[in-house]
Amino acid sequence: MKTKHIGITLGDPAGIGPEIVLKALLNHPEVYELCTPVVFGPLPVLKKYLTLFGMEASLISINDFKKAPEKLFQNDILVFNTPLVEPIPEPGQISAAGGENSFKAINAAIEQALEKNICAIATAPINKQSLKKTQIPFLDHTAIFTNLTDSHHTMTLFVTGNLRIFFYSRHIPFKEIVNALDEERLLETIKVCNQYLKQMGFENPHLAVAALNPHAGEDGLFGTEEIDIITPAIERARMANIRVTGPIPADSVFHLASRGRYEAVLSLYHDQGHIAAKTLDFFGTISLTLGLPFLRTSVDHGTAFEIAGKGIANETSMVEAIKAAARYAWEND
């Protein structure tokens, strides 16, 4: 049986994306047992990092999937060559060229996924400051994917072993978290989480909602958001026959979920869930974007400019992101 094509975007060329993508494909033959990976990005960037790290690979450029080779040999890497925006930034350098090259690779992968030439996309990290230096009107991966696919209810799901974490809000300043809490929106988010868990194969999923305040507010002693917003939304979700518990103090809910008490946790803000997942297994955590016309997976870390170009980046999360994209793509076909 011919394996499915999984797109892999190269990320910011000044970050660790090129390094972890090359390491994932050249050092992990199990990836090729699950799928046929296709790297999206400029060939000159890949060639630069192959030379820098002393790696050997045969880069096979394809822009027509009908002509893609069915059999690959050791160290063959299929590349959907995207136009290079020069100059190639040096490792660790914030630049408009880095942002534009990142975006062109993502855009090309999305186009091919919508045309069903690839069945899922695994993304290497991009840099928000480099994106900001361009005219591209998007802050991050999720915004790019949501807008370019005309999607409306995308959600991020972190997977770390048995722990699954959804996010109510993501990249907003900490001082705006409370103002972002809304009963109707929280109720809708709980419903969407329940729907996605069922799509992933859980017949009657049990969702936990993390509390915002210490000790879940302690009956209003440390804040009233649990009383005024979170609990009412949960009670309404239960009336809609959704199996949901909370609000549960954040210092225990993620541990309980990792032990199997709940199928997933709804984190109320970015760091609340990120800290839990990355403390449990920093390199093994992957991110899934649900609600798109296709599956997108990602590493759970950033461009790591401080170690870019040094050859010491750990590719585990990239490997797991590619493997997850391949596994879920098969199951959802």
Score class of each variant (00 low, 15 high):
I88C: 11
P89H: 07
P89R: 08
P89V: 04
E90F: 01
E90R: 11
P91M: 11
P91H: 10
P91S: 07
G92R: 09
G92V: 12
G92E: 12
G92H: 11
Q93F: 12
Q93G: 08
Q93M: 14
Q93D: 11
Q93L: 12
I94N: 09
I94K: 03
I94E: 10
I94C: 08
I94R: 10
S95L: 02
S95Y: 10
S95F: 05
S95W: 04
A96W: 03
A97I: 01
A97L: 09
A97N: 08
A97W: 01
A97S: 15
A97F: 01
G98S: 10
G98E: 09
G98D: 09
G99N: 09
G99Y: 03
G99I: 04
G99L: 08
G99A: 13
G99T: 07
G99S: 13
E100Y: 04
N101D: 02
N101I: 04
N101A: 06
N101S: 09
S102T: 14
S102C: 13
S102G: 11
F103A: 02
F103W: 15
F103K: 09
F103H: 09
F103S: 06
K104R: 15
K104D: 08
K104G: 08
A105P: 06
I106Y: 04
I106G: 01
N107M: 05
N107F: 13
N107R: 15
A108G: 01
A109F: 12
A109K: 13
A109P: 07
A109M: 13
A109T: 10
I110F: 02
I110Y: 09
I110V: 14
I110P: 07
E111L: 12
E111H: 14
E111R: 13
Q112F: 08
Q112K: 15
A113F: 00
L114G: 02
L114F: 08
E115V: 02
E115W: 00
E115T: 04
E115K: 11
E115Q: 11
K116E: 15
K116G: 06
K116W: 03
K116R: 15
K116Y: 03
K116F: 03
K116I: 10
N117Y: 01
N117W: 00
I118K: 10
I118V: 12
I118F: 06
I118E: 11
C119A: 09
C119R: 09
A120T: 14
A120W: 10
A120D: 12
I121N: 03
A122W: 06
A122H: 05
A122N: 04
A122Q: 05
T123C: 15
P125D: 01
I126Q: 00
I126L: 15
K128V: 14
K128A: 15
K128N: 08
Q129Y: 06
Q129I: 00
L131Q: 11
L131Y: 08
L131S: 13
